[in-house]
Design a protein around this nucleic acid. Sequence first.
DNA 1: TTGAAAGCGCTAACAC
DNA 2: GTGTTAGCGCTTTCAA
Lengths: 348, 348
Amino acid sequence: MADVAERAGVSPSTVSRTLRGLTSVSPQVRTRVEEAARELNFAISRQASSLVTGRTGVMAVLVPTLDSWFMGAALSSLGPLLRGAGMEMTVYVVPDLAERAEFFERLPARRNADALLVFCFDLNKEETARLDDLGVPVIYISQHVEGRPSVYVDDVAAACRATRHLINLGHRRIAFAHTVNARGFSFSSRDRLLGYRQALTEADIPLDDDLVVTTPPRDKRGTTQAVGNLLSLREPPTAIFAEQDELAASLILSLRTVQIEVPERISVLGFDDQLMAEWLDLSTVAQSPSDMGRAAAELALELINDSDADLSQHIVLPTHLIPRGTTAPPPAPQGEREGNSPAEGRNA
Amino acid sequence: MADVAERAGVSPSTVSRTLRGLTSVSPQVRTRVEEAARELNFAISRQASSLVTGRTGVMAVLVPTLDSWFMGAALSSLGPLLRGAGMEMTVYVVPDLAERAEFFERLPARRNADALLVFCFDLNKEETARLDDLGVPVIYISQHVEGRPSVYVDDVAAACRATRHLINLGHRRIAFAHTVNARGFSFSSRDRLLGYRQALTEADIPLDDDLVVTTPPRDKRGTTQAVGNLLSLREPPTAIFAEQDELAASLILSLRTVQIEVPERISVLGFDDQLMAEWLDLSTVAQSPSDMGRAAAELALELINDSDADLSQHIVLPTHLIPRGTTAPPPAPQGEREGNSPAEGRNA
DNA sequence: TTGAAAGCGCTAACAC
DNA sequence: GTGTTAGCGCTTTCAA
């Protein structure tokens, strides 16, 4: 910077003012400085400036993985948005409990970011408290934390509506498939199961734990086995609600492998509306991770700038049921009908 | 830090030494300092320390998007590896040409990172030169840049082998499907086309531009249309080599929609071996983005520490042809046979 | 509108 | 093994 100042024949302060776009610089000086900076290929060191301003210009992002549709979409939308605000994005990938313990022990984001975006972690009280005294705003995405800024969809309601869709089609034996996650990374999954149960209860359909199956994530064999378990039940399901599209896709392919047509014999309903849902013509519940990312980033920027902004606001984004080709009425009418709620046609 | 020093009854230097894990601290003092640091919830400011050490502790990563299988896998493996080396990862998402121009204009990584990992960009000379004078090592991933450290797979050879697999099965009308990318983001795609052409030429199969189709990325309609174009050719293909699994998946579903069985009527071969390949039982060429990420990170760390390390080494990672259920011999023997190369059975 | 000087929080070189 | 001191590159008073 001293070099630039010398070359432009001004003081370092003036160079600083110019490069930060302050107005209190005469046009001629401004041109001279900018030219010198360009010639010397100069860029301000964030390290040095943040040392004095107290701002790092960094948005920290905590994610369990980047290898998922949700994270990819959410963070891709984040990047350009932050750039617009002059911020950079540093990403902490914390895939398992060991890394997680270490993260919370060392808390590397402390003093090294202006805000922290926490994605998809099911934090315990202690962890939340630890983040609280990070000294910067912490925004929770795809999870709701009491009294802290959060951005999420109402998974319970969405799953409930989705399940009702199946009920309204005439299904009464409805399975719920979810993936086992490492403990502490599965907020939405739990809520979706709640929604499923709620819909069944409302429709007076008895809950049957045999209909709730669990598979390891992204495991073809596990899915096949789950399908086998469901089919070998005395009264097998006529519909399966999968907690995620990926799982739904896997289920459909497993079912077709054993010559069970979807939706003729069994309906399958997903959650997410990611790309493969359209390809597979999969009925699903749409949510938009990029909207969530954007909302979270905007909220974070607001909290950074207004130190006295509302720290406990929750942004609940909408979901949409998208009926496609994998859900249809069950193959043969099930005997009992009496419990059917009279309202709500098929337009759940 | 001064607070910690005071609380522990030592000087700031000692605190610094302790927290950096230097050995020249007596055990008792070390315990006292660590305790004080914990009690005060103190963490070192990277900003301040990098100002004096000249190291930022940051690995910058330049990617076109995060919303893709390749990036997700590559960066997920990167995170923990960097953490192990005490580094953080800041990600620059540069999705289009406008953002790209701005990135290269401002070069925000300058002085704010110890190394830069450039993923999947097909850079021009000027851009490469601009990165050269960034002052830190720049590693190119999934692309080869002459004289610069690069990590990639041999797309030409892999595509050639893959095409030979189809030829060896008896196919002679082989289509190549690729996605249109924004100019400058499509290094591998180009190389895979080259490999395809090379294999055909070696087998004396005439190149036919009608067999090379292009679709917008992730566009169902575009795929459907491409399939339509291929099927309406006077002599339609009996096999399609898709530049990526995603595209292959989309093609298969399009084909099945119009009642064309895969592989009975048309074989489909992908590239990547991502999750959906296994699900769809898709024959494909496997590459490992996480290995590429790891190799790149290790190379970067080496270049950071050895200023005189070999700056032009290229790491070429292996690919594997994985024949699964979507490739089979063509339905009916094609008339002409004379051009067949005698070598190489079916074990391409 | 510009410059001089102080200092942000840390580390490194040197003394003890 | 520990403390003292100078200074990394910037921004920010304050004075001119």
